[in-house]
Design a protein around this nucleic acid. Structure first.
Ligand SMILES: [Zn+2]
Ligand SMILES: [Zn+2]
Ligand SMILES: [Zn+2]
Ligand SMILES: [Zn+2]
Lengths: 133, 133
DNA sequence: CAATTGAGCGTAATGTTATTACGTATTCAT
DNA sequence: ATGAATACGTAATAACATTACGCTCAATTG
């Protein structure tokens, strides 16, 4: 039994909506797309998103107040630090992990006795494709 | 004439409110604190915040939807990349810049032909003081 | 087996954050 | 003076997120 197969109906619907999307979606956009599946209230979406993010299947983009399906090969669930590059033009999001960035931030935390819980790295800009256009 | 002296009345009021605060404030909290100074509407705050952030005097914390006065010795206005360590318990925010982190992220952008516009780095956790408590 | 517990669900109401729209005032350079 | 740029005031609305209440179902456990 994989993690994904353990998802409830609502969780699967939200997950599939995000995987089918071209880019990040807001909770309310997800809600709208699931009206026909019986979704009626924001909480149905937020509850599913909470679970999905805790499983590492979905990421929240803080600078966008939106959510994306995990597109990385990485394993989440650890304290693994992921960065996101978000294209302001086409909406594409790329996930990447950089060991050195991770190490430097951990090092800062260590030096400053800061107990890091969650780290957000988001780069806003224009992706390669949009840069040419 | 310094930058700060060029601020308008509204901008100065918002700036001073943030400097007097112990931690990040939401726009609406700022609004509440400036009622006695004649503030009546969110837009008065948001307009001042826009200006202050563009001057580098104030930073927006994306993961908090809140704002802090700049506490760094750095010069903003360049593309300088600042990271924030935010204590979830006491609200203290520390700014720091790390050249290597900056370089690694720029390097990723270069390799991927991504034209970075603005980068957010926010570490949520517990500060040294709160860690002991 | 009955009781308890925990996760999830549905709905309504409310709270919080941010923007759009419209009109006015002030400043500064032409 | 005229036009452009910047700022301001107010009202309304949009967008994002949570609280509260009660219910269902399945797993645990005494
Ligand atoms: Zn991922
Ligand atoms: Zn793009
Ligand atoms: Zn600063
Ligand atoms: Zn603290």
């Amino acid at each position: 039994m994989t993690e994904a197969s353990a998802l409830t109906r609502n969780q699967s619907l939200v997950h599939n909506t995000l995987r089918a999307a071209e880019g990040p979606l807001s909770a309310y956009t997800i809600l709208d797309r699931l009206r026909d599946d019986g979704f009626r209230a924001p909480l149905q979406v937020y509850r599913a998103l909470d679970k999905l993010t805790s499983l590492g299947l979905v990421h929240r983009l803080e600078s966008l107040n939106a959510f994306v399906a995990c597109a990385g090969e990485h394993r989440h669930g650890e304290n693994e630090l992921i960065a996101f590059a978000i294209c302001e033009r086409c909406g594409q999001v790329e996930e990447f992990a950089d060991a050195i960035v991770c190490e430097r931030l951990e090092s800062w935390a260590g030096d400053n006795a800061f107990d890091a819980d969650k780290t957000t790295i988001e780069i806003r800009g224009k992706c390669a494709v949009c840069n040419m256009a």
